[in-house]
Simulated scan of single mutants.
Amino acid sequence: MRSMTPADVNAIDGAVIVDVREPREHEQARVEGTIDIPLGELVERIDEVPRDTTVYVLCHVGGRSAQAAQYLEAQGFDAVNIDGGIVEWYRAGLPVAVGN
């Protein structure tokens, strides 16, 4: 499984990010424009993930996104884990929407 830093992913124009956190987590902080599919729903909602491009998978600190990226790879997707999740995204000073 490949991994990239949040800064490297943010630098990719048009990067498709799949956020596998729970809805309550999005209320606290989120990256705008992500495809939001909680990890527990990924199997049922896999058709919402584009197959024609690399997808970058995000969670809180990187554990769930690593699981999701491995699963997506096994299903034939080009998936990359975002190291450190949204916590590291925020620490890197990248854009994060906070609150509702």
Rank of each mutant, 00 (worst) to 15 (best):
V61E: 14
C59A: 10
I17D: 00
D36T: 06
P23M: 12
M4W: 04
V9N: 02
T34V: 14
I35F: 02
P6G: 08
V87N: 12
E44F: 13
I17C: 05
V16K: 02
D8I: 05
Q75V: 11
E22F: 03
P95G: 02
P23I: 10
V98L: 09
G14H: 02
T53F: 08
V16N: 05
Y90C: 08
V18M: 02
I37D: 01
E48V: 05
V9I: 12
I35M: 04
G33D: 10
S65I: 08
A11F: 00
C59V: 07
A69C: 11
H26I: 10
E48P: 03
P50S: 10
G63M: 14
E44T: 09
E27H: 09
E48L: 13
I35E: 11
V20P: 01
M4I: 03
R45P: 00
E88H: 06
N81M: 01
E25Q: 08
L42A: 02
R30V: 09
I12V: 15
I86K: 02
E25N: 06
I37Y: 09
P23L: 10
V9T: 04
A7Q: 14
H26Y: 14
D8Y: 00
R21Y: 09
V18G: 05
A74K: 14
G85L: 00
G40L: 12
A69P: 09
D52C: 12
T54Y: 07
G33K: 09
I82H: 09
P23Q: 07
R64T: 08
V49Y: 00
G76Y: 13
V9R: 04
E32P: 00
E73A: 13
D52F: 13
N81S: 10
A92M: 08
A11N: 10
P95A: 07
A68E: 10
R24I: 11
G62E: 13
D83W: 02
I37G: 00
R24D: 15
V16Q: 00
A92P: 11
R91P: 10
A7G: 05
D47E: 15
A79N: 04
L39M: 15
D8H: 08
D13E: 15
L72M: 11
L39Y: 00
D13W: 03
S3K: 07
R51Y: 01
H60Y: 15
E41T: 04
P50N: 10
T5C: 05
I82Q: 04
L94M: 07
P6F: 03
L42C: 02
E32Y: 06
L72P: 00
A29K: 13
E27R: 14
A15C: 05
L94I: 01
I17A: 03
V9S: 03
E88C: 01
I82C: 03
E32A: 15
V16G: 01
V80Y: 04
M1I: 12
Y56R: 06
S65L: 06
I46K: 08
T53L: 12
R45E: 14
T53V: 14
I12M: 14
P50L: 12
G14L: 01
